[in-house]
Structures are given as C-alpha cells and as structure tokens.
Design a protein around this nucleic acid. Sequence first.
RNA 1: GCCAGGGUAGCUCAAUGGUGGAGCACAGCAUUCAUAACGCUGCGGUUGUGGGUUCGAUCCCCACCCCUGGUACCA
Length: 469
Amino acid sequence: MNKFYITTAIDYVNDTIHLGHAFQKIAADVLARYYRITLDKDNVFFLTGTDEYGQKAEKAARLQNITPAELVKKISDSDQKEQDCLNISYDRFIRTTDSDHTETVKEIWKRVQENKDIYSGEYQGSYCEGCEAYYTKEDLVKGKCPVHPTLEIKMIKEQNYFFKWTKYKDFLIEHIKNNPDFIFPKHRANEMLEFAKNIKDIPISRGNFIWGIPVPNDPKQVIYVWFDALINYLTGVEFLENKKLFEKFWPADVHILGKDNLRWHALLWPAMLKSANIALPKTILVNGFLNINGQKISKSVGNVIHPSQWVGKYGTDTVRYYLLRYTNLTDDSDISEEKLLQAYNADLANGLGNLVARVAKLCEKVTLKPSPIPVFSENYKKEIEDFKFNEVLEIIWNEIRILDQQINTAEPWKIKDQKKLTQVLQSTVDGIVCIAYELKPFLPETAEKIEEQFKGPKITSGKSLFPRI
RNA sequence: GCCAGGGUAGCUCAAUGGUGGAGCACAGCAUUCAUAACGCUGCGGUUGUGGGUUCGAUCCCCACCCCUGGUACCA
C-alpha cells in the first residue's frame, strides 16, 4: 500500500453528534495518524463531515423559524467543534451543501443516466418523514413507522426517478463473495448477501420538498439524500476539480460507518459507482454502537453525552484512550463514566503518567544522548491494520509494565557510579521514547508531550500528565 | 420463524482435544525514584444447561436456555 484514503460516515444534521459518533471518528483518526507515519503525511487523506439535505432538515428549520441553510450551518459547526475537541485530524470537513459537492452529484447523476440506469416512474406508498423512506404495509407496526411511532405515515403518490438497482444485483453478490475484505467484520457480509437477494429498484428523487440538490433538467425534483450523501466520498478528494488528487487517492481504502448505514454502503454505493464507471472502495468497516450504563444512547432516554462534555472534564486523550481500549470496534459496547475513571486512574495516572514522572525525575542527575527513532513492531502493525485497537493498547501497556519492573530491579536511585547510572537511564528513556512513538496514533497530545520532555540532552520532571482523580 | 455472532473470575477480555490465563477491582507483603503511585504474593471459576463422541471436552457433535445483531412472514 502506498496511499491511504479513509472516510467516516457524514453525520446527519438533525442533532449534534454524541459519544457514539465520536467513537467512529476516533477509530478513523487512529488509522489516519498511523498511516501518516508509515506512508508519509502526503499519502494519507482523511475525510469527515456532515450530511445536510433532506426533508427532516427542512422541517426542523421551519419549526425553528430559520432557513434550512441557517439550521444546517449551526449543527455542522457544532459537529466540527465536537470533532476538533477530540483532536480528529481530518484533511477535509465536507458539507453536502458545499458547492463542489453539488456539482459532483450532478455529474454522477448524469453518468448514471447516460448508462440508462435512471428511469421515470410512479411511486405510491406509505411514507415516513422521519426515515425519509417508504414502507410497505407489512413493515408498518399498527399503521405507524417502526422507527418513528409518533409520526403520522403519509400516503404519497408521486412521479419519481428510479435507480435500476436490480441491474446490479448479481454483480453485488459476486463482488461481496469474491472480496472477503470488502465488508469487515465478515458476518456483516452475510447480512448483505441476504438482503441483496431481494433488491428492488428505488426512487432516488423526491418531489414533495425542496431542500436538496435539484435533479439535472428537472428542477421540480430533488435528489434523494442517500444518493447525494454517498457521493461525498468522491467530492472529498476533488473528483471534478483535481484529477491528480482524485487519481492518487481513489478508490477509498476504508469507509468506516455505523451498522445502521451498512446497506447503503455495501449495496447502493457500489451499484452507483459501477454504473458511473468508477472503481469501488476497498473496505467497508462497520462499527458497533455504544451503550451508556447498559442503555442505548437516545434523546428520549435522556442519556446523550457529547464528546466535549467528557473532554472538558477529563481531557481529550482520556476519552480517546477509554473508548479505544475498553470497547470493541465492531460490536456494541457498554461504557460508563465510572469505568472511564477507573481506566484513567489505573492506566493513565498510575501506569503511563507515573512511569513518565518517575523516570523524568531520575534523569535530572544525568545527561543523555537522543534516543534512536523507534519503529513499529510487526505485531503492532498487524493488530492496528486489522483494526484491533484494544489489542495494540494492551501491547503498549505491557511495555509500560515491563519498564516499571526493570526500574525496580535496577534501582537507579541507589546507583552511585555516574557512568552506570547514565547507562541504565539511557535504556529506560529509549523505552519511553518508543512507547511515546507507539502512542502517536492513539494519544497524539500525550505522545507529543512525552517526546518533548524526553528528547534530551537535559531531561527534567514537569507537570503530571494525568494527575490522579 | 430463519440467518449470523456470543455466553469463561465481581468487571473487560485471552486461550487450547490433555490438571483453565491476563489486566482492572479486592486483600496482604515489600519499597520510596514516582501521582498514598511502581513491584511481589494472594483471593477469585463444576468455562450458560443437559446429553453424546473420546483414555480425556471449555474446545468437536446434538438438544435446550439466555444475550446481541440482521431479516421474513403468515395466519
């Protein structure tokens, strides 16, 4: 691999992102930072952003008596702030209302149309405005949407443009079967294969609202949000404006997204790309959801926590560490503030923080040479490239333990001979520098602080990295 | 109902057809370079239930129960 293009899901602007979304951004950030080290900064592109069109945004704006544009700007800005407080190192924060995105979507529409995969048809069905989707009668629960039981289902009949999804059914099934790395984790692929069997053509335009990208040559219709949103991955690397950049980074190496978005990414998106004659992404990485204290994160439960709330109390790297170490990326995990605190004291304060503090203090008596530049071990690389972030952190914390043991055995505070003391501490500091290097993708701020403190030749103790709470 | 994943120490998770492992938490010892921190020792489990195969099963097979996810549909 000589380049790495990673994207996250773009978040819909009905509300500011919470810890569940943040978890996915952090995972993406780890990969981006890792590949920036191994492949070089210029060869990595990391895209994230917000999904802003659609009926829900239009309606929400009307309720607040502001324009849709004002509303989506507000939420998009606050999403971006949430990501910034987590140190998410995106190269571009895309908004689907960006002008270059509009142009890209129109271009893809035209290509798909030229390939005869768009046709006009009449659609009649039960429509849920919450889902922005049609339901069959059978899908409804007591006449209401299973996801939004409080909303009225509307019978809508309209002239729409349809995408010939069925044309790609066999292709999709073959692609998923022939590319075991296409969907990760694997069992998600089975789900998609099941669904693919029953693919039907879907309407990809809407005529009953206006907050969207107009259909080329038919301004009465706007393009369906999913059709528009997926294309952001092309816009992100300047599909239209910058051929060189696009050709360098496309196809995307990893699309990371929540399990709720899998169907669109695994089945609709590849069909769209195939139709437009564009290469398919390599890996779709599906992340699980977070529960808080055993409960789903939801507004109605009232347990929504925004990243900035925990970051404000405990710091960016604490939140990153806790989520990366004590959750499963691909399964649902349960988190709590209590467990975060436990992880903070046990691992960050007593473990990493204390090790750094004790060694820095010991080093005040000696002058050391700069440590050699570390490299990632094969084991480290394998685990991180397989998305097993908790395993990598376990490797690192084991190294911390070993260093602590070695210090206890060597008892440098008792060593009188300056030469021998220097020798012992040199090897300890080399170990710490190595740990800092390995921490870079995970705890960038902390890694940088440690590197700065131990770059020599004079090392002095500084402020605690993680004071006990 | 069907498909997939899972059920191992209080918690988070490893492991293997041959007397069950780690970290956290808890208790004790020791120690002071360090953030009442580090280290060492200990406590802690009929590996969801019941059968079967085997000299031997936590691992393989069968049935069942529970959890998670996906999905179908008819009365």
